[in-house]
Nucleic acid binder design. Sequence first.
DNA 1: TAATTGACTTCTG
DNA 2: ACAGAAGCCAATT
Length: 133
Amino acid sequence: MGFVDHAEFHAAVYDIVRLIPFAQVTSYGHIAKLAGMPNHSRHVGQALKFLPPNTNPPIPWHRVIGASGTISSRGPGTNGAQRQRDALVAEGVEVTTGRTGELRVDLGRYGWFPSVDEFRAAQEGDDEEEGEA
DNA sequence: TAATTGACTTCTG
DNA sequence: ACAGAAGCCAATT
């Protein structure tokens, strides 16, 4: 699986994010792992930042949070984390707000962390447009 | 070319 | 549970 260029990595990230089940969440690091690049968690976030607003099919970027179950705050003055919280709540995911304003999801209940094997199986059963010979 | 940045993760105390 | 530090690596300054 080694990717030779940036675009391929982004495409792989998008494909994986699309497969996150409704009302479930996973982490940047786990997506990097499924993409075969376990040390690129930060770049998964970069890929999502590059994501255009209107995609077809839609890419559920809001289902990607930190490994500790917290929604990454894009810094004060931005509402990205708030929008992510709203999108998750709209799917029925419980998002708790901690004492210091951190937004947290219970990974035990909503976490989606399939092994690479399970992920590939899901990819075959759920999406066959990839031209898998 | 070197330093900084960041939608991260993990370990320590 | 929380804070700090180290490790990480492509993109950006």
